[in-house]
Computed example of a mutant assay.
Amino acid sequence: MAERKAIFITGGASGIGRAIALLFGQRGWFVGLGDVDKDGLRETEDQIGHGFVFSHVFDVRDREAWNGALDGFAIATGGRIDVLVNNAGIPLGGELIQNSTEEIERCLDINLKGVLFGAQAAYPHLVETAPGSCLLNTASAAGIYGTPGASVYSATKFGVRAVTESLDGEWAEYGIKVRSLMPGFIDTPLLEHATNRQSNEAIRQRVTDAGLEITPVGDVAQAAWDAVHGDKLHTTVGKSAKRLAFASRWLPGRLRKEMRSSARPMGK
Rank of each mutant, 00 (worst) to 15 (best):
I16Q: 07
K38A: 13
A223L: 10
K157A: 02
G51A: 11
A142R: 05
G40I: 03
G114M: 05
S199P: 01
G146R: 12
G218H: 13
I81G: 03
V85A: 08
T147K: 06
R206V: 07
G146Q: 08
F58Q: 00
E64S: 12
L126Y: 08
G218N: 12
F158H: 10
L244M: 15
A69F: 05
G159A: 07
N87L: 13
I9C: 02
I110P: 04
W250M: 12
V127P: 04
S248L: 09
G211W: 14
F52R: 03
K113C: 09
T164D: 02
A88G: 02
I97F: 13
D231I: 10
I203R: 03
G78Q: 00
E128T: 05
G79T: 03
V217P: 10
I90W: 02
N196E: 08
Y145H: 10
D168Y: 14
A122T: 04
E103P: 09
V36S: 08
D168M: 06
H50Y: 03
A2I: 05
G51V: 12
K232R: 14
S262P: 07
P189R: 00
A141R: 07
E102G: 02
N111I: 15
F185D: 15
S262C: 05
G12D: 06
D35L: 02
R61T: 15
F54N: 02
A194H: 15
L112R: 08
R106H: 07
L190F: 07
L251E: 04
Y153L: 10
T129P: 01
V160H: 04
V228E: 11
A162Q: 07
K239G: 10
D168W: 14
G253F: 08
S14Q: 14
E192H: 09
L33I: 15
Q198C: 04
D219L: 10
N86S: 08
F30V: 01
G93N: 06
S240R: 11
R61I: 11
S133Y: 04
G49P: 10
L135G: 05
R61M: 09
E170I: 14
E173W: 14
I81W: 00
K38Y: 15
D209V: 11
K242E: 14
V127A: 06
E43T: 15
F54A: 01
V160I: 13
L255Y: 09
T147D: 02
E105Y: 08
L22W: 05
G79E: 01
F24E: 01
D231K: 09
H229M: 13
D231F: 02
V85H: 02
R254P: 00
S248W: 15
I81T: 07
G143L: 11
C107Y: 03
R249G: 14
T77G: 00
I214A: 03
G230T: 13
G34R: 00
G40L: 02
T215R: 01
G118M: 07
L191H: 11
Y123R: 04
I214H: 01
T208H: 05
N137D: 05
Q120M: 05
P148L: 09
G146V: 12
Q222I: 04
K268T: 11
S180H: 10
L70M: 07
H50I: 15
T236E: 10
E170W: 13
R197H: 14
T215Y: 05
W66P: 14
L181S: 09
S248P: 03
A88C: 12
G72V: 00
G28E: 04
G28H: 05
G49I: 13
